[in-house]
Design a binder for these strands. Structure first.
Length: 496
RNA sequence: GGCGCUGUGGCCGAGUGGCUUAGGCACAGGUUUGCAAAACCUGGUACGCGGGUUCGAUUCCCGCCGGCGCCUCCA
């Protein structure tokens, strides 16, 4: 089965072929760790996860790497993201929102980075993001690869792709790399004509070309700094990905590179320039796959609009008013096509919870009927072949789900075969292996069970008023009640 | 201004030059039920606007209008 993917590099659909048969080397741009990752980040990360799992369904062995950006790069106004995080951390520590002992010293950027790295990994694992379980071997931190970055910068200088400017800053010379602009369409001419008044500040005059970008900046005052041949300072933002991709994947040319669409320019354009400039290879990644942005209730997510949600805001109910099971958030974030704008809504989350519940019930029933003994199936199975065909068409998840969901409802005469099919489907969707870790510690769980007993007892007396009262209390507590034929009552926590 | 994506029924969201032309949610009717819920069965409505190509277009082409992203830190 041939996998079609939309390649941002060529702006067209292409048939995927790996460089080495049966093996895929894939890199995803990961999170910055100055704050909790938000649902938009996870939409992009989970798209990478879906791609990886799809490749695995097609029997590729996937070596997937994702970085953690823990260097606080300078931003406009000379504020370092790590210093900002430190200030936030101090406030949060005072108000008790950061657990005791989690961050001893808010002025230590490594502690802050560790804190948010752990939070990210925790959220990512809850969401079934496979690579989060491969930390640290496939999830490198930028600060652990400073030496490699310096090596690549040296090589770029040797090969005349980079230079040290009057102010001591090392810049990449975009004019030395004719292909600059190939990915984003922002060629040098276009950049110049569209630049307007944005690039005419003091720093620009020291560059040979306004689009030249920083590789190393000597700066004694930066919160994170390292010794280097160009003075004590810190690396540019783009160099880390070029370095970690080649170091961890062991190749100058990799198969797939993923990220959010906003990274196309300048980040990925610059990665290509650096990697190809240093290696001399024709290309860096052969397929560039980008996910579209996530909207919230029809609007761009932004802090000022109050619709800016982290994954944990959604889990704990701060986003929608009720707690959300991680599997539901995962489903919600992967259920629409990665190259379409996705609209995150409370309604969508409720829809998703219904589907997730159906999947969980379905799997539980089959596991019970078969004792967990699945038959052998492969992609030639009618359901799987349709499912795989849909995914092979540029990850058409909607069509794939349209194959699976109605199938769940059908009569399953051969539960062992159905279980095997389901396991293959779920190896891509990753829904039912997310277990309910959060519900175990629910303080009102015992109370709710107590109401359930009351309800059952009242029903046996046909005391409908008492039964209804107990039922209402359970529902108000955020649980669902199901009657069973023999007079029993089954209580489940609402998924969203 | 430049580059790219996009506009489908009440909502979300696939797809196709003509063939009973997804799926989900919601809604309506039904089965079930003490009443509900859940579950199951049944049902309806669509292709932004204007041209063109064609025997025939929601699907191809052109124009227009609208939405979104990037061009500056950002998944």
């Amino acid at each position: 089965m041939s996998l079609q993917l939309y390649n941002s590099l060529t702006n067209q659909m292409e048939t995927f072929e790996s460089l080495e048969p049966g093996v895929v080397r894939m890199y995803s741009c990961g999170p910055t760790v100055y704050d909790f990752a938000h649902i938009g980040n996870f939409r992009s990360f989970l798209f990478g996860d879906l791609l990886r799992r799809t490749l695995e369904l097609f029997d590729y062995q996937v070596h997937h790497v994702m970085n953690i950006t823990d260097v606080g790069h300078m931003v406009e106004g000379e504020t370092d993201k790590m210093s900002e995080a430190a200030n936030r951390m101090k406030v949060n520590k005072k108000s008790g929102r950061v657990p005791e002992g989690a961050v001893e010293d808010p002025n230590d950027p490594y502690q802050i980075a560790d804190y948010y790295t752990n939070a990210f990994l925790e959220d990512a694992r809850k969401l079934g993001y496979k690579i989060a379980s491969e930390y640290p071997e496939n999830v490198p931190k930028a600060t652990d690869h400073i030496e490699g970055m310096q090596g690549m910068i040296k090589r770029l200088i040797e090969r005349d792709h980079a230079y040290v400017a009057e102010d001591g800053v090392v810049y990449f010379s975009v004019e030395s790399f004719p292909k600059y602009g190939e990915l984003s369409g922002n060629t040098l001419e276009k950049l110049q004509s569209g630049a307007g008044g944005r690039v005419s500040d003091e720093n620009q005059s020291r560059k040979r070309h306004p689009a030249d970008f920083m590789l190393w900046k000597p700066d004694q005052h930066h919160v994170m700094k390292w010794d280097s041949p160009w003075g004590v300072g810190y690396p540019g933002w783009h160099i880390e990905c070029s370095v970690m991709a080649s170091e961890l994947l062991g190749r100058d040319v990799i198969d797939i590179h993923t990220g959010g669409e906003d990274l196309i320019f300048p980040h990925h354009e610059c990665e290509i320039a650096q990697s190809c400039g240093a290696s001399g290879a024709e290309s860096f990644a052969r397929y560039w796959i980008h996910a579209r942005f996530l909207m919230v209730e029809g609007e761009k997510m932004s802090k000022s609009k109050g619709n800016f949600f982290t994954a944990r805001d959604v889990f704990n109910g701060d986003a929608t008013g009720s707690e959300v099971h991680p599997a539901v958030l995962r489903y919600e974030l992967i259920k629409s096509h990665y190259r379409a704008n996705m609209n995150f809504t409370k309604k969508g989350l409720e829809d998703s919870s219904g589907v997730v519940k159906r999947m969980l019930d379905f799997e539980a029933r089959l596991e019970q009927e078969t004792g967990g003994q699945a038959a052998e199936v492969d992609l030639s199975h009618p359901v799987l072949s349709k499912f795989a065909a849909a995914l092979s068409s540029d990850l058409n998840i909607s069509e794939a789900l349209a194959v699976v969901i109605p199938w769940l409802r059908q009569e399953h005469r051969d539960p062992r075969e159905s279980l095997a099919v389901w396991r293959a489907v779920n190896s891509v969707l990753g829904i039912t292996d997310i277990t309910e870790e959060s519900a175990g510690g629910d303080p009102i769980f015992d109370q709710v069970q107590q109401w359930g007993e009351e309800m059952k007892e009242a029903r046996s007396r046909k005391d409908w008023d008492a039964s209804d009262a107990a039922r209402q209390k359970i529902i108000d507590a955020g649980y669902e009640v199901q009657m069973v034929k023999d007079g029993g009552v089954v209580i489940t926590k609402s998924l969203a």
